[in-house]
C-alpha cells in the first residue's frame, strides 16, 4: 500500500516531535493519508521521546513494525540506537548528532556510546546514515538556527522523503505553523535543504 514510514527519536525539549508534525501536515495536504503517533512520556524535559509517522495511500494503523521504517530521524546520538530495530534495510537514518548525557554519564558512572558505534549499528541494519554535526549549523541574525527545522530540510534533501514532499509544500507548512519567528525557521529549512550530506 505504498507506505512511507518514519520513526523519530530524541529527548524531550529538542523539537523532534515538531519535525514529525510538520511532515504530517505537509503530507496530509498533498493528499496522503497520515497517522502520527507521538509518545512523549511525561511532562518533564529530558526524557526519551519517540514518534511513529506513517504516510500511506489508505489509512494505516499507528505502529511501524520492526524493520519497517523507511526513514529514521534522530536528534540524539544514543537514542538513535533505540530506533535501529525499526530500520528497513535500504532505508535512511538522519542523525542530528547531539549528545545529551544523562547525569550518570556526566559524572562518569555510566557508559555512553560513541558516534562510530552508533554508525556501525545503523550500517549493520542496512541503512544509509546522514550525520548533521550540531556545531556545523549556520546562524541567523547572530542566533543559532532552529536545528530541528534544519534537520527536516536535510531529510527532505537527502532521503526518499524528498520524493514524497517537495520543498515548497514543506515551506508552506512551516510558514503557517508559527506566528513569530517564521523567518528564522524558513532560513533553517532552506539551509537544511541546501546542506551537503
Amino acid at each position: 500500500m505504498n507506505n512511507y514510514d518514519i520513526y523519530l527519536v530524541g529527548v524531550g525539549g529538542q523539537g523532534v516531535l515538531t519535525i514529525g508534525e510538520i511532515i504530517m501536515v505537509a503530507a496530509f495536504q498533498k493528499g496522503h493519508s497520515v497517522n502520527f503517533y507521538p509518545t512523549k512520556g511525561m511532562a518533564q524535559r529530558g526524557g526519551f521521546v519517540k514518534a511513529q509517522l506513517r504516510i500511506s495511500r489508505d489509512p494505516a494503523g499507528a505502529g511501524i513494525p520492526e524493520k519497517g521504517a523507511d526513514l529514521v530521524i534522530s536528534t540524539e546520538v544514543s537514542e538513535t540506537l533505540k530506533a535501529v530495530r525499526f530500520i528497513k534495510p535500504g532505508g535512511d537514518v538522519v542523525l542530528l548528532a547531539y549528545v545529551s548525557a544523562p547525569t550518570d554519564v556526566m559524572i562518569g558512572k555510566a557508559p555512553y556510546p560513541t558516534l562510530e558505534a552508533v554508525a556501525e549499528q545503523v550500517r549493520r541494519a542496512g541503512a544509509r546514515l546522514t550525520v548533521i554535526a550540531p556545531d556545523s549549523l549556520p546562524s541567523f541574525e547572530g542566533a543559532p538556527v532552529p536545528d530541528n527545522i534544519f534537520t527536516l530540510g536535510a531529510a527532505v534533501a537527502h532521503t526518499r522523503l524528498g520524493e514524497l514532499l517537495d520543498p515548497a509544500s514543506v515551506e508552506t507548512t512551516v510558514r503557517t505553523r508559527w506566528k513569530r519567528g517564521i523567518e528564522r525557521n524558513l532560513f533553517a529549512l532552506s539551509a537544511g535543504l541546501q546542506s551537503t550530506p
Partner: peptide, 23 residues
C-alpha cells in the same frame, strides 16, 4: 524467520536515561 525481527543489540548499547524532575 526474520521478517519483523530487527536486531535488538543496538538498544542494549543505548545510555540509560532515567527520568528526573524538571530543572
Amino acid at each position: 524467520h526474520d521478517l519483523f525481527a530487527g536486531s535488538d543489540e543496538a538498544e542494549t548499547m543505548a545510555a540509560a536515561r532515567p527520568i528526573t524532575v524538571c530543572a
